[in-house]
């Protein structure tokens, strides 16, 4: 791998990494507030991509209008999922895990029936266009992803740290009981969290789907990746999640660049296990009792 290939692989890695981050941030926010792993998050990603496909191909809508609509659609879907699969089983250790697996199987197969198993490609106005930057060539579609992720992450940071709503979410994440004693409505905080998580996962649906294909099982690997990143970053730790996502993206891109693309998943999990043996509490997490 020479230097220019190396730069391209790092760039591709950052692109994939940013999308992982956006999916994983949703998972980590939900974990933070409910202490559950949402295995169906990847299915929201998948349905978002289908929604984008239909809006663009059938509805002939503008790409950016589509992005906005898909964000809304995914947010609604996430809220429905919370209501159906999680609200009733809050507090059971394994209940939410199984309901989310059930919801995931349900949605995957529903998509398979409704849309068929054939992969579809989502056309965008930016896929063919490229920019030259010195000796390197980048596609605009890919290049769009990094700034979008940056903007969203910054927005999320401001929302969580600077607004009343964010304070509400943080309070409930820290202590459900005490927060509700202080007059915070915990259910409202949970719903807001799912809205944010859904909106965040919509962005990779719209931006990344054109690079690959849209198919019913596209959410499965995404969920596993998001889960890996959330663990690597330290559960519920936003900064750690961002770092872990970018690292994983670049690492995978390197493995693929070395010609071992079939082994990408195995390598990333091997790295994860080795990493956890050294730092069992995540990248920048501190030692704490897990109260899951």
């Amino acid at each position: 791998m020479d230097a220019s290939q190396f730069v391209v692989q790092v760039f591709n890695g950052l692109v994939i990494g940013s999308t992982y981050v956006l999916v994983a941030l949703g998972v980590t926010l939900i974990y933070g507030i409910l202490r559950i792993i949402n295995f169906a998050h990847g299915e929201i990603f998948m349905l978002g991509a289908y929604l984008a496909y239909f809006l663009v191909v059938r509805g002939h809508l503008n790409y950016w209008v589509t992005a906005g609509l898909v964000m809304m659609g995914c947010a609604i879907l996430a809220v429905v999922l919370e209501r159906v699969a999680f609200r009733r089983v809050r507090g059971f250790e394994l209940g939410p895990l199984i309901t989310s697996i059930g919801a995931s199987i349900f949605l995957q197969n529903l998509a398979l029936i409704l849309f068929g198993g054939d992969p579809r490609s989502l056309p965008t106005p930016y896929l063919e266009r490229i920019v030259h930057l010195g000796p390197f060539v980048f596609s605009i579609q890919r290049a769009l992803i990094i700034p979008s992720a940056l903007v969203l992450i910054l927005g999320l940071y401001l929302l969580i740290e600077r607004t009343t709503m964010g304070r509400m979410i943080r309070a409930v994440s820290q202590d459900w009981e005490v927060a509700s004693l202080m007059g915070v409505n915990p259910i409202a905080a949970v719903v807001v969290t799912f809205v944010i998580a859904g909106a965040l996962v919509a962005v990779p649906s719209v931006l990344v789907a054109p690079l690959f294909y849209v198919f019913p099982l596209m959410g499965v690997t995404t969920t596993l990746k998001a889960y890996t990143i959330v663990v690597m970053g330290g559960f519920g730790n936003t900064t750690g999640t961002i770092m872990a996502g970018l690292i994983l993206g670049v690492a995978e891109s390197m493995v693929a660049g070395l010609g071992a693309s079939l082994w990408v998943d195995a390598v990333s999990f091997l790295v994860l296990i080795a990493f956890l043996l050294v730092r069992p509490y995540g990248l920048i997490g501190e030692r704490r009792e897990e109260n899951a």
Partner: peptide
């Protein structure tokens, strides 16, 4: 499988 997933839930 749709029914199966729903049943699990």
């Amino acid at each position: 499988l749709v029914i199966y997933g729903g049943l699990l839930l």
